[in-house]
Design a protein around this nucleic acid. Structure first.
Lengths: 189, 189
DNA sequence: GCGCCCATGTAACTAGTTACATGATTCA
DNA sequence: TGAATCATGTAACTAGTTACATGGGCGC
């Protein structure tokens, strides 16, 4: 309960979908969960080794001609139990920090153009994200195998969460740009 | 440019509003920016010392009878410049991790009730947050001094960002609960 | 020949959290 | 008497990032 290494569970989650090398796990993360989770090699490789020691995964070295050899890890029964137990536990949400809001909060002496620029940038960023989410959604829906899997509605849900979030942020950017530009006129009435 | 200690700027930002002790800074953070930023004593005290060495702040020890003595820090001209320069720089957004989405993504074998429970919890959490934001907004608007300050529209903006975000999350929770409960019926049409 | 992808790892550093240590005053 | 608030700090640990180190194959 006490200290939780979440990287461990992220890796177990991926390995529960399919056996993978560290390199594959990174690719999977980057393509599927990167809008709400990230992992890097410097964590992945050591954590895989630790988990092997704990018996949560097993390694098999795969040699393919003309390629570097690959350490393919598979989840064990013990690993599945560990993952399942973690999935049932309540979410421990960690405070996220938002640098844009921190800057905004302290920006009373900053030229308005600079503030607006930051808000425009944020807006564009989220517009791109919305496009990404829609594309990924279309991609999932086009894949018959995924579409028929138990994962499908859940994967869709994570995408729509991102989209809702970005859409809200875009609206906020627009309104904030407007209200800061108009001075405080709109406030009183 | 390279490595940025954001705690430093958060503290400078607070000290630019008013001279403070480490303890006061923590209180300010907890009451004003806690919905998007947090700082703890174990960072605050050492960073204040470092900044004093760098000449960004000056310390004055204040003795009041019947109370522990207090180290009150004030921002210097050098500190103001450092802060202003940072505020002008573009925001470096850092990837946030979302444990709820991570769990959801891997939850194909988790009982639906457990998933729904987590979504309900998330919804309740954000409903409380919306209430907090509205209360804080009312509080700011009731304070004549704040209302007439340059900070006012910016502080309001940070609150509305949080509110937009939470409102979107609540909607997403509702829709996700609905769509997961109804099976996948609603998808095709 | 150059850069990209495949593939695995370590070292060094930066950041952030939790627990510990201390001690006075105030309020119930 | 015991909890809360005021007040400052350190030690130990956990997590996370960046840079470094290596090296083959493939396509342009």
């Amino acid at each position: 309960m006490a200290t939780v290494n979440k990287t461990k569970y992220a890796l177990l989650g991926v390995l529960n979908v399919m056996p993978c090398s560290g390199y594959d796990i990174k690719k999977f993360c980057d393509s599927s969960i990167s809008h709400f989770w990230n992992e890097n090699y410097a964590r992945i490789y050591p954590v895989l080794k630790e988990m092997e020691k704990e018996g949560l995964v097993v390694k098999e070295t795969e040699h393919t001609e003309g390629r570097p050899s690959k350490n393919v890890y598979s989840i064990t029964e013990a690993g599945k139990h560990e993952l399942a137990a973690w999935l049932l536990e309540p979410v421990q949400s960690v405070m996220g920090r938002n640098e844009l809001l921190l800057k905004l909060f302290f920006s009373s002496e900053v030229p308005l153009e600079n503030i607006i620029e930051k808000l425009e940038k944020e807006k564009v960023k989220h517009e791109k994200l919305v496009a990404d989410y829609l594309q990924m959604e279309a991609f999932l829906k086009a894949d018959e195998q995924v579409k028929n899997s138990k994962d499908f509605p859940l994967w869709l849900a994570t995408l729509s969460c991102g989209r809702y979030n970005s859409e809200a942020r875009i609206k906020w950017c627009q309104e904030t740009i407007r209200s800061l530009t108009n001075g405080f006129a709109k406030e009183g009435d």
